[in-house]
């Protein structure tokens, strides 16, 4: 897999709207290697943060749901 191909996958899986994903993907082939790596790094870091935030949200929701289940049992 080339860096360009890998970056296109990252863009495809990012939270950008479809239109912007297409615009970014169309630019990947003309990007320099340094730019490809910098953008990939930013996207990976962003993805990590999103996963972290989602994990935290799930944790809070689980707490809420557990509390609610206790109330239901009463």
């Amino acid at each position: 897999m080339t860096s360009q191909e890998a970056l296109k996958i990252l863009i495809k899986n990012s939270t950008f709207i479809e239109e912007e994903k297409e615009r970014l993907i169309s630019l990947v082939d003309v990007m320099e290697e340094g730019d490809v790596k910098a953008l990939a790094k930013a996207l990976i870091e962003q993805r990590d943060r999103e996963i972290e935030a989602a994990e935290e949200a799930v944790e809070h929701l689980d707490e809420l749901l557990n509390a609610e289940l206790l109330i239901d049992e009463d």
Partner: peptide, 19 residues
């Protein structure tokens, strides 16, 4: 949220490529 946490095999390969 759970769905947003899922990383596909393809995405994992792409991440590993840069790591």
């Amino acid at each position: 949220y759970k769905e947003s946490m899922e990383v596909s095999v393809e995405e994992r390969v792409a991440i590993n490529h840069f790591k």
